[in-house]
Amino acid sequence: MLTARIPASVLFLGLAGLLPFVWGVVTLYSDPLAARTVELIGPRFIGPYVGLFYGSVILSFMSGVLWGFATKAEGQVAATGYALSVLPALWAFFMTGGGPASAAVALIAGFIGLLGLDWLFWQQGLAPRWWIKLRLILTVGVVVCLWPVAF
């Protein structure tokens, strides 16, 4: 099933969703770009701040995606799916305080945990055949971008 082709529009939008993470890394290492960004749109959109805030938003968004997958199930599988689907949002809410490095570590752990949930929903046939392939690509991208903030 890892050979399932990701629809082009889905892959494009998924990769576009990595842009705030990438921008955070770029402005972490480029003082001129960071200064220009602060001047144009504010300090929340540079360095670790953009990646950490956006990472929390995306984990919450992914809770909604998993909830949607759970609607395809019935009985105990659905109930378990609904319960598991709220974990990424709760993780982001409770675990991302305490400074940039600890928040980045928590987000990395959250995205890796999310990948496990993605796999579980995919294995149960609740997600599209190409889902796990897409999530592997995007999870690697997110972890690579959060890594410099964490360590």
Rank of each mutant, 00 (worst) to 15 (best):
T80K: 08
A78N: 07
E74D: 13
T27Q: 11
A109C: 15
D118H: 07
R44S: 08
W122R: 06
S60V: 07
L15M: 08
L11V: 05
V86L: 12
A70T: 05
L134Y: 02
R44E: 09
G75Q: 10
G64Y: 10
F61V: 01
A101R: 15
L114P: 12
P88K: 06
G116S: 09
G99Y: 10
L107T: 09
R129A: 11
A83Q: 03
W119D: 02
G99I: 06
F69G: 01
W91M: 04
A92R: 08
P128E: 05
F53M: 02
A109G: 14
A109W: 15
E39V: 01
V77L: 14
V38N: 04
V105Y: 15
Q123M: 12
I112A: 15
Q124M: 12
G64F: 14
A127V: 00
S102G: 02
A79Q: 11
W67L: 15
P43A: 14
I58L: 10
P43I: 03
L87A: 09
W131K: 01
F21Q: 02
F12G: 00
T3I: 06
R5M: 09
P100W: 13
I132N: 05
A89K: 03
W67M: 15
I108W: 12
V22D: 01
F45D: 02
S102Q: 12
Y82A: 05
R129M: 04
T71P: 04
V65N: 05
W67F: 15
V65M: 11
A70G: 10
G98R: 06
F21T: 00
A103D: 08
A70L: 13
G75S: 08
A79R: 12
A104L: 11
L59E: 01
A35N: 13
L126A: 03
A106R: 11
G64P: 05
M62K: 03
L52I: 13
T37E: 10
L90Q: 06
S63V: 00
A16T: 00
V77A: 15
V105P: 04
G55P: 04
G110Q: 07
P20S: 05
Y29A: 07
S85M: 07
A109K: 11
K72N: 11
D118G: 12
V105D: 04
V86H: 03
M62Q: 08
L66F: 06
G47E: 09
G116K: 07
L84P: 02
L11A: 14
A8D: 07
G98L: 07
F12Y: 10
G110F: 12
P32E: 01
M95K: 01
G116N: 11
I41K: 03
P32C: 11
G81C: 08
I132P: 04
L15P: 03
L19G: 04
D118T: 06
F61H: 02
L134P: 02
R44L: 14
L59G: 03
W122E: 02
F21C: 01
V10Y: 02
W131M: 00
G113N: 08
L117Q: 11
P48Y: 11
G24L: 14
I108D: 00
A101C: 10
A78E: 13
A70C: 13
Y54N: 02
L28M: 15
R36M: 09
A34S: 14
G68S: 13
A89C: 07
L114V: 06
R36P: 00
Y49G: 01
L115H: 13
P32G: 08
T27D: 12
A8W: 14
A78F: 14
G110K: 09
F93C: 03
V77M: 12
